[in-house]
Nucleic acid binder design. Structure first.
Length: 244
DNA sequence: CCAGACGTTGTT
DNA sequence: GTCTGG
DNA sequence: CCAGACGTTGTT
DNA sequence: GTCTGG
């Protein structure tokens, strides 16, 4: 799955890459570390406005939610949507047909388990700073206040070889669009089979990854800092990898 | 029928 | 063991 | 998801 | 709104 991302390098430069303009109404959410569990604003491009980079809250609220309380409880359960079940689950079945989006990031974080220890890793796309994860969105109207909540989920697929080594218990990874093919995901009127065929694990030779320090989960320091993305040597990890 | 869930993982 | 904040 | 707290009182 | 378990 994917609950932790970096959006630091999403910027004015990103406009050319995605042939989209940054929404003048938003402040670009640029962070070294964002946890999905806080429902952060994240830069996205939606299928309804494929030429606009805007910002949505992480954690999709389905239309059937009636109150703000119900919506908030739902959001921690819809950070991810499994590619294998998005066409049938009530929370996602409408969005997968006509509310797809690109989630713009420059990396994401996963934990590798060895024995009783967990080691955080930072994963990036090899030949581009900013890349797109495939997602779903929904604009949910709070009937009590009349306000609209703009929300999304990140789709997950089975892990490729690289991600299986890192995320070695869950064996899942975010659905990542291949560089240059991102807008295919936003095409209108796609058939179910065309959508299904797109939601495959990205080839692992396109990604790079290394272990980072445990600053990312240090409560006494701020993980939203450049140091969170620095490579960190764990002798026991190197030793283990040398044997395997 | 009613009532409550509506999700991701992996494990008992 | 379970809850909470990020 | 992970990591750290898990409590009372009253004070800065 | 729709699906599921009882």
């Amino acid at each position: 799955m994917c609950y932790s991302i970096s959006t630091k390098k999403v910027s004015k430069e990103t406009e050319k890459q995605f042939k989209s303009k940054i929404d003048s109404c938003i402040v670009m959410p640029s962070h070294y570390h964002l946890s999905g569990f806080t429902q952060p604003l994240v830069p996205i491009i939606s299928s309804i406005q494929p030429s606009l980079i805007t910002a949505y809250h992480w954690g999709l609220i389905p239309d059937f939610c009636k109150t703000a309380k119900e919506a908030k409880e739902m959001q921690i359960k819809t950070l991810n949507a499994k590619s294998e079940t998005v066409f049938t689950l009530p929370s996602f079945k409408h969005s997968i047909r006509d509310k797809r989006c690109l989630v713009l990031v420059d990396g994401f974080y996963e934990w590798r388990t060895l024995g009783k220890q967990k080691y955080p890793y930072f994963i990036q796309y090899k030949d581009t700073e900013v890349f797109a994860m495939g997602g779903l969105y929904n604009d949910w109207v709070n009937k009590d206040t009349g306000k609209t909540e703009y929300t999304f989920s990140i789709i997950t697929t089975p892990a490729n070889a690289l991600m299986s080594k890192i995320h070695n218990e869950k064996l899942r990874m975010p659905f990542i669009l291949q560089k240059g093919f991102e807008h295919h995901w936003l095409t209108a009127n796609l058939k179910e089979t065309e959508i299904v065929d797109m939601m495959q694990p990205l080839s692992d030779n396109l990604l790079k990854a290394y272990a980072i320090s445990k600053l990312i989960t240090n409560k006494n320091k701020n993980p939203d800092s450049p140091e969170v993305q620095l490579q960190f040597e764990y002798p026991e990890l190197d030793f283990f990898d040398a044997l395997n």
